[in-house]
Design a binder for these strands. Structure first.
Lengths: 338, 338
DNA sequence: CTGAAAGCGCTTACAG
DNA sequence: CTGAAAGCGCTTACAG
């Protein structure tokens, strides 16, 4: 493999000069540059990025750690699209993406390993929690990072979040407009910061119509299909059961649909369901799922861009995305004669 | 951030000695080692892996490039599990995983970029094709790699494959045992090496029962839901349509199911379907999908292990996995009075 | 505009 | 058993 020395020798210049034409760090006479370029071409030379990293103290790679939460037991839902967004965007800027999985020895351990190895210039975290140790650690170690999900407490860091309150509010209001008044809510675990937001949207919509909040209709479940399945079962056991259910994640909604089908009921006729996320499967359920869309591929790529800005010393602005209600066929007006 | 020099100074030894206790590359007197260990502990020192990589000419990271084929338009199906398998396994050996996406400027470009950057010690390729340029390139550049999918032509490299012929054979024989005799086959694009294998299984099973091959019943589709949807539509237009269909990928089977439902037919009653892969969704379709299981998480982790062996100079053995037929509810015996 | 030299943080023969 | 030194392949002030 050719090194910068080989190029220097072949072009009859010093390695410093080669470096300068490579990086544009100094004016180089046209003929000199062309000699160098020719040598690079002929030897198919590519700078060794490891050597470069050592010297520049920048690796050109960003890290992402797959949260165990999403992966546990059940399928990864939006994770693949999120990663694809990151990876595709990073390529635009010549960055690579290092992926790790959350270790069993505590959530923070993987982050420490990644940071301490110095293989990355920064990282993206997702799924922020209340009392999340990760931002605290990264802030303290001065590692650039951005998050999918807003900060909790008074921490300051760049993030993108989806307005979960608004999303759920829109969805529940949609159900109310269909004349439902006994609406269940299957929420994410309360440790997630977005869980609270979404609940707020539910409450807001009901209060607006002066419907009393029935706490038995609000259930928290694990963020898996099975979690949604279990939660729905509980809701169906109520007397009377809700006629419509807002589910705070599509994956859980899929489980909820299964529970409904097993009970011999038909989604979109006997009971209405709205999900949250708009994962790929949502368009393919039977009936297709009405849901609140989070553009995760986009969010992944935007976060990646923000992180790279941050790494380059700029100050990216955080923002909150307004989610959109995607109406499909999983909801129907409440029919009195049912 | 502490460097090896800081440790050496604090422990009152040379950096070489610190390096030796770090790596066990030489006997170090117990007291000396303890002094060093203490300094490491106190300064929370972690070796800079970039510096180490430069010196050792080994980076401790492996590469994976997400094939555009699976990602295009439709959902990633098994990719997330495959990646999870790689990432989890790599951690066991202290390796990291670099992920890139296939570039638009030709399939090979991403591989070249990754290899030339020298950020990786080896890589994993998936979805081998006939006339695949990647193995040829990697072989020629002497980059260690392993593949999900057997070699085509006379190339030699370590791989894991699933016996697609056997898998499809088992599935089709199962349909034959249910008295179906007009069985469709929706196959993967013929450029994939596994496509041919699977077709062979179909043909073998039919020949064994002396059923003539009707080429109109064999359709190739894109590896997406929509591909399966389109293919199924064509099959349904036949007169008479098949009473059972073997689909060479679950994702496509999901599309096929949609086409069947749209035609007002019921899967598992009017028409039987068998998929291939056993992706997560397969257990949740309505009815749950009978399918041939490929253990992709396992394959990902095994390939990762093989690659690390290869990198360390060992000679991992390739092997073929025997797939299992997972019987769920998407098939029924052919009823004559239908 | 170009070269010589120091240095990024390690590892690894080579002495002793 | 331990130290001094070279070197991995680059970048970057500093001279000139």
């Amino acid at each position: 493999m050719a090194t910068i020395k080989d190029i220097a020798k072949r072009a009859g210049v010093s390695v410093g000069t080669v470096s300068h034409v490579l990086n544009g760090t100094a004016r180089v006479r046209k003929e000199t540059r062309e000699k160098v370029l020719k040598a690079i071409e002929e030897l198919d030379y590519h700078p060794n990025s490891i050597a470069r990293s050592l010297r520049r103290r920048r690796t050109g790679t960003i890290g992402f750690i797959m949260p165990a939460l999403e992966r546990s037991l059940d399928e990864p839902s939006y994770l693949m699209d999120f990663i694809a967004g990151i990876v595709d965007e990073s390529k635009q800027y010549g960055f690579d993406v290092l992926i790790a999985s959350e270790s069993h020895d505590g959530e923070l351990a993987s982050y420490k390993r990644m940071v301490k190895s110095k293989k990355i210039d920064g990282c993206i975290i997702t799924c922020t929690k209340k009392n999340d140790e990760r931002p605290i650690y990264l802030l303290q170690e001065k590692i650039p990072f951005v998050a999918f999900g807003r900060p909790y407490n008074d921490l300051k860091f760049p993030y993108i979040d989806v307005d979960g309150t608004l999303g759920v509010y829109k969805a529940v209001r949609y159900l109310l407009d269909l004349k439902h008044n006994r609406i269940g809510f299957i929420n994410l675990p309360s440790e997630l910061v977005c869980s609270e937001d979404r609940l707020r949207g539910y409450i807001k919509a009901l209060k607006e119509r002066e419907i009393e909040i029935d706490s038995r209709l609000i259930i928290e479940g694990k963020t898996t299909r099975f979690g949604g399945y279990q939660a729905m079962k509980k809701l169906l056991d109520l007397t009377p059961p809700p006629t419509a259910v807002m589910v705070a994640s599509d994956l859980m909604a899929l489980g909820a649909i299964k529970a409904i089908q097993e009970a011999g009921l038909v989604v979109g006729r006997d009971i209405s369901i709205v999900g949250f996320d708009d994962i790929r499967e949502a368009a393919y359920t039977n009936p297709p799922l009405t849901t609140v869309r989070q553009p995760v591929y986009k969010i992944g790529s935007l976060l990646c861009y923000m992180l790279i800005q941050l790494i380059e010393g700029e100050n990216p602005e955080s923002f909150v995305i307004t989610p959109e209600l995607i109406v499909r066929d999983s909801c129907a007006p409440l029919s009195l004669e049912k």
